[in-house]
Computed example of a mutant assay.
Amino acid sequence: MRLETLAVHAGSRIDPATGAVAPPLYLSTTFERATDGSYPHGWIYVRHGNPNRAALEEAMAALEGGATALAFASGSAAAFAVFQALSPGDRVVISKDLYHGLARLFREILPAWGLRVEFVDLTDPAAVEEALRTPARLVWVETPSNPMLRITDIAWVADRAHAAGAWCFCDNTAATPILQRPLALGADGVVHSATKYLGGHGDVMGGVVVLREEDAFARRLREIQITGGAVLSPFECWLILRGLRTLPYRMRAHSENAMRVAEFLARHPAVKAVHYPGLPDHPGHAIAARQMTAFGGLLSFQARGGREAALRVAGRVRLFTRATSFGGPESLIEHRASIEGPGTSTPEDLLRLSIGLEHPDDLIEDLDQALMEKPH
Rank of each mutant, 00 (worst) to 15 (best):
L221A: 03
G200W: 06
R220W: 06
W156E: 07
V208F: 09
T143S: 09
V231R: 04
L149S: 15
A174G: 03
I178N: 06
K196H: 14
D203P: 01
T152K: 09
F169A: 14
A184Q: 15
G207R: 02
V204A: 14
P147I: 05
R181T: 12
G228S: 00
N172F: 09
R181G: 10
A164D: 09
M148D: 13
L211D: 09
L149H: 15
P182H: 02
D171Y: 07
E142V: 03
N172C: 11
I178M: 12
E213C: 12
N146I: 13
L149I: 09
A216K: 13
N146T: 14
L183N: 02
V141P: 05
D159T: 15
W167S: 15
G202T: 07
F169M: 14
T227V: 09
R220V: 02
V204H: 10
A163P: 00
R212Y: 05
T195Q: 12
A155G: 12
W156C: 03
I154N: 01
Q225E: 13
G165P: 12
G202D: 13
R219G: 02
A230V: 00
R222D: 05
E223M: 04
T195F: 06
E214G: 11
G189S: 05
G228V: 02
F217I: 10
G207W: 06
S233T: 15
A216P: 06
Y197F: 07
P147M: 06
V210I: 09
A175K: 01
P147L: 06
G199L: 06
V209L: 10
I151V: 13
A218D: 04
T173A: 04
R212C: 09
P177V: 00
P144S: 07
P144L: 09
S193H: 12
P182G: 03
V210R: 01
A230F: 11
A155N: 09
R212S: 10
E214A: 15
D153M: 00
D203S: 08
L211Q: 13
H192T: 02
V210K: 02
A175M: 00
G199I: 05
T227A: 06
I178E: 11
L198C: 08
L232H: 05
W156H: 04
W156P: 08
D215T: 03
C168F: 07
T227I: 08
E223K: 08
L198N: 08
D203G: 02
N146A: 15
A174I: 14
D188I: 11
D171G: 06
K196F: 14
